[in-house]
């Protein structure tokens, strides 16, 4: 069966859920919904009255099993062209132009196995959450560690859900780079090579790695893992560009 062409369609915002102060999840109902793979994204296009267009890519947060809809978790970038529109203007029932699902490299499904090391910086957790949700929905037990860098506890997207999903082979290791609550026993610094070495040692040999976040974080992770002996073809990256 030849692939269907990638075309723009008009989605309806069917729900909006605040995740953190800066991030919200937008449920989009799609007239031409197609099944997606965890890790894929949608392109979003806004068109002004004068014809000016702005386009961004946003990762799918929901697992593939949700037919007819996708959840996009979007962080509000103060000087952004698209994300402030989502956060400040869009309401349930509004229409937005999207195309997708897109991508086939930065994807995971249970058949690809593991052990799985997921490394996120900020909203880079979104495509990794789709993988974690799919793993859980499928009853998959692939040993999985999420190393998740955020500014502080309140900036951890999906915090309650991750707490609930932890166990059954899933470890969630937040590292807080700016502030941490009293009594915090987790990591409290930027991701570095010694941290990666500790996480890898606990995960087991020949991990499959997905790293997503600001470019500098992803560079640190990719270079650190190579130094630690992880084959480059086992490391898949998605760079966001500068951190906000």
């Amino acid at each position: 069966m030849p692939p269907e062409p990638l075309v723009w369609q008009i989605a309806t915002v069917s729900a909006i859920r605040g995740e953190t102060e800066r991030a919200s999840s937008f449920t989009l109902s799609l007239p031409a919904w197609r099944p997606h793979r965890a890790g894929q994204h949608y392109d979003v296009r806004l068109t002004a009255a004068d014809g000016y267009q702005a386009q961004r890519s946003y990762s799918i947060a929901s697992p593939p099993a949700h037919t007819g809809v996708v959840d996009l978790t979007i962080e509000r970038i103060p000087d952004g062209e698209v994300s402030p529109y989502f956060h400040d203007v869009l309401e349930v029932g509004d229409l937005v132009e999207v195309r997708g699902p897109i991508g086939g490299y930065f994807v995971w499904e249970p058949a690809l196995g593991g052990p799985l090391l997921l490394v996120a910086g900020g909203s880079g957790v979104v495509p990794l959450m789709a993988m974690i949700r799919q793993r859980a929905a499928a009853g998959d037990t692939t040993p999985t560690t999420l190393l998740y860098s955020a500014r502080d506890v309140d900036d951890l997207i999906y915090r309650d859900e991750l707490d609930a999903l932890a166990g059954d082979g899933l470890r969630v290791l937040p590292t807080l780079t700016r502030a941490h609550p009293p009594g915090w026993t987790g990591y409290a610094r930027r991701v570095d090579e010694p941290m990666l070495a500790e996480v890898l040692a606990a995960l087991g040999p020949d991990p499959l790695v997905y790293a997503c976040g600001p470019t500098l974080l992803v560079e640190t992770v990719a270079a650190g893992l190579v130094n630690l002996g992880v084959p480059p073809d086992r490391v898949r990256t998605e760079r966001f560009g500068p951190s906000n």
Partner: peptide
């Protein structure tokens, strides 16, 4: 490479 570098995944829609 610098901190504004992206991966090709960011333009996967255009590529497709």
């Amino acid at each position: 490479f610098d901190e504004s570098t992206l991966d090709a995944n960011a333009v996967a829609g255009e590529l497709e």
